[in-house]
Amino acid sequence: MPEPAVEIRQLSKAYGPTQAVVDVELEAFSGQVTAVLGPNGAGKTTTLECLVGLRRPDGGTVRALGLDPQRDAGRLRPRIGVMLQDGGLPNGARAGQVLRHVASLYAEPRPVEDLVERLGLHDFWHTSVRVLSGGQRQRLALAIALVGRPELVLLDEPSAGLDPQSRRVVWDLVSELRDEGVAVLLTTHLMDEAEALADAVVVVDHGTVIARGTVAELTRSTGLVRLTVPDGLEAAELSAALGAPVRSTGPGCFVVDADASPELLAAITAACAAQGAQITSLDVGRRTLEDVFLDLTGRDLR
């Protein structure tokens, strides 16, 4: 195993009485995309901020590219590219001016024109940051994170506020970085983003890691059945009839958490027939990352 680009051991950080992160263990490798997945307030951003040296951990060790973000900050900063959740773009400046300025802080920055082209920054190159849309800000922030040719890229919710086209552009760029051997660590609460991009997923909740593995590993467990029955079926009834857990995911939408055997499907249709309830869709599939995630983190809104 090569030396990890990110190595976090037993990281703890509290804000006053609130324990934001407890004993987090995390690794990320060059040439891989590692997704830290978790609901709002799970400790994703705190972990990332400790990694880039913006916060000092209360306990544990944090290493980025083998360096201590606090002690070796001067040596680490030129080698990482960071996209923060709040963007951090100066409102008074024009978009192009900001990107050119950050580029000037590096000896051999990535050609600005290249990023302009890839991320479609032309349209708002001369526009004041103040009036940029959320998606435009995200694209500019990503360009800023990449302009220094970083070896380790840290992205806090990179696709927040992006339309589907822009998100695709961002994903392609992240995949390309991986292929170039860059270590990418991103936080997200978008399942499809983690599924599409991540070589490794770390699920965090309430400041601790609750699961980790590849997407395939995390979703490998038994399949499930999704069905839509607009009228005349209750989750509790169906569950009783099947002897398997059933949850309602919306009006008339149900998920049966059990191995999708022919016997189970027969029992489901029989139960609906007994109720005279029309099935409008029935889908047998493997668990998605979202299913795993919801099982792990619970279903309450945060």
Binding site: V52, G53, L54, A73, G74, R77, P78, I80, V82, L84, D86, G87, G88, L89, P90, N91, G92, V102, L105, Y106, A141, I144, G148
Partner: peptide, 21 residues
């Protein structure tokens, strides 16, 4: 005024992660 608004927008945080520090 400039620093107060830059600080609120997270500009200082972002620049602190660049080689500028």
């Amino acid at each position: 005024i400039l620093t107060a608004f830059d600080r609120r927008a997270g500009v200082l945080r972002l620049l602190a992660t660049t080689p500028l520090g």
